[in-house]
Computed example of a mutant assay.
Amino acid sequence: MQIDLLDQAPVQLAQPDLAALPLVEKQARLLAQLRELGSALVAYSGGVDSALVLAVAVQTLGRERVLAVTAVSPSYPSWELEACERFAATLGARHEIIATHEMEDPNYVRNSADRCYFCKTELYDLLLPVAQAHGLAAVLNGLNWDDLGDHRPGARAGVEHGIISPLKDAGLTKADIRAWAQTLGLAVWDKPALACLSSRIPYGTPVTLDTLRQIDVAERHVRDLGLRQVRVRHHGTLARIEVAPEELDAAFALRQQVDAGVRAAGYLYVALDLRGYRSGSLNEGIAHAG
């Protein structure tokens, strides 16, 4: 990876529409912010957003001034942790794994539309003392510019805890992030979007350990069939499968295997969503949630 060529790029701090800036200027803004901080803890989930923050932070600040921390809980997909550890190792990054306990918070379990606020509150309550113990100046997350246009109650928890969102602050969109990650040769540059298993449960339906395990088993089965972008949306006895639009034909061709595996996970009915995967599709029902 080589990003030193960005050192001389101009930084336009007064530009209000950051997303409209050329990518090189956004990159320069992010690098300048990291250098000003001097050290950081990166809340690293394994997705491309936090992976890019981690990679650029390690190269810009050095391995000893950066710590990646991955939080695991029953809502963290079981197949993600190994890949998460492997990527951090390729960077030579220091990496710690901590357990979060959002399932002990009734506000989280009741699964209202602001569920993510309570999850991120739990996360940042744990990360800030870790950063302090390691003498790190700040905690960084992977929030990006495009996230501002979606329902993101977790972002409020970040603001309340003083968490820094360097991708958002630089105006980097999801397309920018993937392009930069590809340029840097990061294996995760085209990795499908990542979200916790609780995001598969409609608002108003309580989050339970049994439901999370059921979703995890069903989704792992569908992914093991070779489909990359997968969500198993939980609707009681019905599993609504979302895959990337370009994978719909493949999913239909595999319908017997999908059906058998998902029903083996405990669902009575299995449906393929003809609209395909869309981020936060359960947000479509917020107006109807209790």
Rank of each mutant, 00 (worst) to 15 (best):
A133Y: 04
R200K: 13
A155L: 00
V66L: 04
S165M: 04
A179L: 04
A181V: 10
K26A: 05
R200S: 12
N141F: 00
V270M: 07
S50W: 04
D273P: 14
A271K: 02
S45F: 00
L128E: 06
G62V: 07
R29V: 01
L91C: 09
I241R: 09
H134K: 10
L186T: 12
A55F: 07
Y267Q: 10
E36W: 14
L61W: 10
Q15R: 03
H221A: 10
A250Q: 15
N144L: 13
R263N: 08
V230W: 06
L148K: 15
L81K: 00
R220L: 15
L140F: 10
V258Q: 09
G171Q: 02
A287F: 03
I3S: 03
T100W: 02
V258W: 09
F252H: 14
V207E: 08
H221W: 15
S39I: 01
G226M: 10
I286K: 05
D273I: 00
A57H: 09
E247H: 08
E284Y: 12
G92S: 02
A289R: 06
Q132M: 11
L126C: 01
P16T: 14
E284Q: 14
A179R: 12
V11T: 14
P245Q: 07
Y277N: 11
A260H: 05
R63A: 15
A187S: 05
V230C: 01
D190I: 10
Q27D: 07
L126Y: 08
L123C: 09
A239I: 03
A19H: 01
Y117R: 04
A32V: 13
K168S: 13
K120Q: 05
E85F: 07
G92V: 05
H101T: 10
V139I: 13
E122F: 00
L272M: 08
H234C: 11
L140D: 06
G226P: 00
A51D: 07
V58Y: 01
C119P: 02
L197W: 01
T90E: 11
G135I: 13
I97N: 04
Y117P: 03
A93M: 06
R228M: 06
A170K: 04
L91Q: 04
